[in-house]
């Protein structure tokens, strides 16, 4: 009961603080209820988690009520199209432009149709895994197998973050064994559960997954049908280095570093390894008042200066990554162009 009472107390205090902050923020163009639609319909995924962390911080900072709504990509873009006054904003990750690059239905060019805003976090957990008793112990094993004419099946969800690493591996096969890249065959599956199941059924040799969803599977004994091993984490070395030393679950950061470039090499061209950081950013309606976006820049800058949000993010295995809107747009466009080249080169 005490907890509930103290909870009510905290809520009242927050309300009082919020009221006073609202008074302070009377001039702020960001007021009242802000609906944060996200491009995922899952409340168990990283998009919801990252958005909730930043929405909480923004609510506290601005005295407004930011509420995350897991509506999924189509509904999120629709909601954003309808509302330009800043009361609906969107949070998504690189899928926003990758979906467009892969020609997925429902994905317009976000840089053209919307205003791409601030980046705020990276999930360094995007991973590729094999069964623990798999003959493939490294990405190079996979590349060599495909190069020698063996079909290697990779379970992915087509058209986005899940596919980009597969595209990179295929590109690596093409560079090392020209003409053999089609031996790396995609197995189009849906959710993480489908990808895991494809491995259990022996339908997939490699699956896309994440540190968060699959780490426990990598700690199972090898004789367990469910046991998996990490093959590759797509994030940059510098990104994973920023994670807490304890890493995730029972796997430390140092253990995870063994699966990151340059320890794992997936060549993008003769001189460079492919890496991919899954970054989360805001997206606004094209007509949204620039003052609102500028106010968000200021609010986020202050939030990141205070440093509390970084701690919360790191606790949940996110890497803080704030860039104000003017920098993030250029940065994300460059990132998009880089991946567009690889995707284009594999098109026939």
């Amino acid at each position: 009961m005490k907890k509930i009472l103290s909870g009510v107390g905290v809520a009242l205090c927050t309300l009082t603080m919020a009221t006073s902050m609202q008074a302070q923020a009377a001039d702020s163009p960001i007021k009242g209820n802000i609906r944060v639609v996200i491009g995922s319909s899952s409340t168990g995924g990283d998009t919801y988690q990252a958005s909730s962390i930043i929405a909480d911080a923004l609510s506290e900072k601005l005295g407004a009520n930011f509420k995350v709504d897991a509506v999924g990509v189509t509904a999120a873009f629709r909601a954003l199209e309808r509302v330009s006054n800043g009361s609906t904003i969107m949070v998504f990750h690189d899928q926003a432009y990758l979906g467009n690059l892969y020609g997925q239905k429902g994905y317009d060019d976000p840089f053209e149709k919307y205003t791409v805003g601030q980046t705020f976090a990276i999930n360094p957990g995007n991973a590729y895994l094999v069964a623990k008793n798999s003959p493939y112990k490294s990405v190079q094993d996979v590349i060599d197998a495909a190069g020698s004419g063996k079909t290697v099946r990779v379970a992915i969800q087509p058209g986005g973050v899940s596919e980009i690493g597969y595209t990179a591996m295929k590109n690596a096969v093409r560079l090392q064994y020209p003409g053999m890249e089609d031996n790396l065959a995609p197995l189009n599956t849906g959710s993480q559960s489908d990808k895991n199941q494809a491995m259990f059924d022996g339908l997939a040799d490699v699956i896309n997954g994440s540190v968060q969803a699959n780490e426990q599977y990598t700690r199972l004994p090898a004789d367990d049908q469910k046991a998996m091993s990490f093959l590759w984490l797509t994030a940059r070395e510098g990104t994973v280095k920023q994670a807490n030393p304890e890493g995730m679950g029972g796997t430390s950061r140092d253990d995870l570093m063994k699966f990151v470039a340059p320890m794992v090499s997936v060549p993008m061209d003769e001189s460079k390894n492919f890496t991919f950081d899954k970054e989360f950013f805001f997206i606004y309606n094209k007509e949204t008042d620039p003052k609102i976006i500028a106010a968000m820049d200021v609010a986020l800058e202050e939030i990141f200066k205070e440093g509390k949000v970084q701690e919360t993010m790191k606790k949940s295995f996110f890497i803080p990554d704030f860039l104000p809107s003017n920098e993030s747009q250029q940065y994300l466009m460059n990132k998009r162009d880089q991946y567009a080249k690889i995707i284009e080169s594999l098109k026939k």
């Binding site: 168990g44 919801y48 988690q49 909730s52 968060q212 969803a213 780490e215 679950g249 949940s316 295995f317």
Partner: peptide
């Protein structure tokens, strides 16, 4: 679970 940064999986 995810909001609390807790993993659910085979060892949960």
């Amino acid at each position: 679970f995810t909001l609390q940064g807790l993993q659910v999986g085979p060892l949960f």
